[in-house]
Each structure stands twice: as structure tokens, then as C-alpha cells.
Amino acid sequence: MNIVIIEDESAIADTLIHVLEMDGFKAHWFNTAGAGLAHLKTKSADLLILDVGLPDGNGFELCKQIRGFSDIPIIFLTARADEIDRVVGLEIGADDYVTKPFSPRELLARVKLRLKSIRRQAESTSEQGQDVLRVENFDYFRGNIALGLTALEFRLLDALLKSSPRVLSRQQLMDFSSMPSEEAYERNVDSHIKSIRNKLQKVEFAECLKTKRGFGYYFEKE
């Protein structure tokens, strides 16, 4: 599983990378808010360890930006111990809060706890029936079959499913999916939709992704 670390202190990052990789995780480290945000917008990840104090921004503000396009579990890592900071962090969408100095093993246990909770939720959703698409680790599944979506394809399909059966224009899809500026043109949306349809074929949902000529696209379960 992929863990993203956004932390400007290299010594702390090295410790985290070591303990995570020793336990079988893949760790990706970024020392600025901008670099970490760019990665999360284009790559899938299973959990984020986020420092509050960063050289180019505030972790609280970064968390709010991430929550605009992702529900990835977030564990704040900070030198701040005040209760108000912990409360603010949790209220804006963080899942846990660890104060420096910390035990790497304790943090690892918290990481595992959050990931275990996600797996339980996914299993519960799966038990509700096989005739639905469910989300897990930034991909969509039918039963145990994963679509294998890219990060951008996931955001496009996620927008269509959450808006179903409302029609979304190409511009709305570009906006909802935070499509990178260099890719943000309408015909590129068509290309991604075609790829999503191809991937939906293996779970027999391709016909549910429909085109409203002259308007855009929508998802309708038949």
C-alpha cells in the first residue's frame, strides 16, 4: 500500500520511511505542500501523513484543499500540542493527530488502524450486494473486480456517479476532476470517458455511462 508523507524535516521523514517500508508499505516523501498536493492530484495513495508546519504553506489549509477532491485518510504530524489545534485538525477532515516527538511504532500502529477501518467499510459495502460499484483505495470495484482506473479516470467517474443521473458537461467534468491545465480541453474528456467505458465493460456497466449529445455525459444504472 502507498503512504504519502508531506514533511519538511528530512530526519523525521527518513525515520517514517524506514519504519513504513520495514512493514511492507511503499512510502513517497515530499518536503513541500505544493509538491505533495501535485502528487496526490495525479497519483493514487492509501494514506497521508501530513505535517502542519510546512515551508510553503499550512498543513490545515492543505488538508482542506485535499478534502476538495479526495477522502484519503490523513494523519496530522505536528509539534503543536494545544487542544484547539487538535480539534481544528479533526474538524477540517483529518482522521488522526500525532504530536512530536512521537514513537515511530505508535505512528505505524495508527496507520494500520486507519487502513484496517477502510477495509472493514469496503467489506461491509461488498456484503450489501454485488450489483453495485463500490469505491476502495481510489478505484471502483464490482464485487472483487477492480476497474483499474487512473487517478484522473477515478475522479471523472466519481463525479458522474455522485451526480447521477444528472448530466455533466465536459467543462463541469474538467472542473470536478481537477484536470491538470495542460490536459483541460473538451476533446480530452471524451478520450478519458472512452477509456472508462472500456474498463466498465469487464464488470458489465459500460452501458450505464451514457452520452447526452450536445450536453455531456451521465451515469444511469439500468
Rank of each mutant, 00 (worst) to 15 (best):
V4G: 01
E7Q: 07
A11T: 09
A11W: 02
A13I: 01
V19D: 07
L20P: 02
E21G: 02
E21C: 06
E21T: 09
F25G: 08
A27S: 12
F30C: 08
N31I: 01
A33I: 04
G34H: 11
G34F: 08
L37D: 06
T42Q: 13
S44T: 13
V52S: 00
L54A: 08
P55R: 15
G57T: 02
F60E: 01
R67C: 03
S70Q: 06
I72F: 06
P73L: 10
A79H: 03
A79I: 12
A81W: 08
A81L: 02
D82K: 15
E83A: 15
I84Y: 10
G89Y: 01
E91H: 13
I92T: 09
D95C: 09
D95I: 03
Y97C: 04
Y97R: 08
T99G: 08
S103T: 09
L107P: 08
L108V: 11
A109V: 12
L113S: 15
L115D: 09
R119F: 03
R119D: 14
A122F: 12
E123V: 05
T125C: 04
Q128Y: 06
G129H: 09
L133R: 00
R134N: 14
V135G: 08
E136I: 07
N137G: 12
G143H: 07
N144G: 11
T150P: 09
E153P: 05
E153M: 05
L156P: 00
L156K: 03
L161C: 14
L161V: 15
S164T: 10
S164G: 02
P165N: 03
R166C: 12
S169V: 11
Q172Y: 06
M174Y: 06
M174G: 04
D175V: 09
F176N: 06
F176S: 10
F176M: 05
M179D: 01
E183V: 06
R187V: 14
V189A: 02
D190Y: 09
I193H: 05
K194V: 10
S195M: 15
S195E: 08
K202Y: 05
A206H: 10
C208G: 06
K210Q: 15
G214A: 07
G214S: 01
F219N: 00
